Simulated scan of single mutants.
Amino acid sequence: MARWEPNAPERLSKAALELFAERGYENTTVIDIAARAGLTKSTFFRHFQDKREVLFGGSTLAALLAEAVAGAPEGGAPLEAVACALDAVGGKVFTAERREFSALRRSVIEAHPELREREALKGLALTAAMADALRQRGVPELAARVAAELGALAMKIAYERWSRAEAGDFGEAARRALDEVRAAVGH
């Protein structure tokens, strides 16, 4: 690929995942990733801090969740605001075009304890973003925390099912997982 082609972050992400799967995460360098994408090391660092960031990105997902919670219809229960957030990220982040990438990403992360730890930290940040957004809507502290935790659990379950192609649409998978989580809590 020519260096001037658009979508450098996507190209770098794709190249990184391919190399992580082929060589292993530890055996892949930033230079390898940039070369596979047909870009330079400096271009890599313009888009990512380090090779882990290819897998975890910035705070885009947390911002989308918080924005969707804030924009949920007024008067609904906290879990309904969380459900709106899960619907929103499904339509913007977890699209059919991203499923293969997401499945490969998940397998790379599962194979490395350091990456599993980073994924857990990212999950905590997503939960905190939803809880903060709920509190800003006037939801009491405990209710906001519980709704955000249950929403994060449902999102994790939905992501696992969706990336394994056990579910068609992420939004539908998230709603189903949220219903299952609610039912489990009710027992």
Rank of each mutant, 00 (worst) to 15 (best):
L19Y: 02
F20T: 03
A21D: 14
R23E: 13
G24K: 13
N27K: 00
T28D: 07
T29M: 06
D32T: 03
D32R: 05
A34E: 01
A35Y: 13
A35F: 12
R36N: 06
G38D: 01
L39N: 02
L39Q: 04
F45V: 03
R46A: 08
F48T: 02
Q49F: 06
K51W: 03
K51Y: 03
E53Y: 05
E53S: 15
V54S: 01
L55P: 02
F56E: 08
F56P: 04
T60I: 00
T60E: 15
T60C: 09
L61E: 11
L65W: 04
A68R: 02
V69S: 05
G71Y: 04
A77Y: 06
P78C: 11
L79V: 12
E80P: 07
L86V: 10
K92A: 14
A96D: 15
A96N: 11
R98W: 14
F101S: 05
F101V: 04
R106D: 12
H112G: 02
P113C: 00
E114I: 03
E114A: 08
R116V: 10
E117I: 08
L121T: 05
L121D: 15
L121S: 05
L121Y: 01
L126D: 02
T127S: 13
A128T: 07
A131P: 10
A133K: 03
V139I: 15
V139A: 02
P140C: 07
P140W: 01
L142Y: 11
A143M: 10
A143Y: 02
A143G: 06
R145V: 10
A147W: 02
A148F: 03
A152L: 07
A154T: 07
A154H: 02
M155V: 05
M155H: 13
K156F: 10
A158F: 07
Y159F: 15
W162K: 03
S163N: 06
S163G: 12
R164W: 14
R164M: 14
A165T: 07
R175I: 00
R175H: 11
R176N: 08
R182S: 13
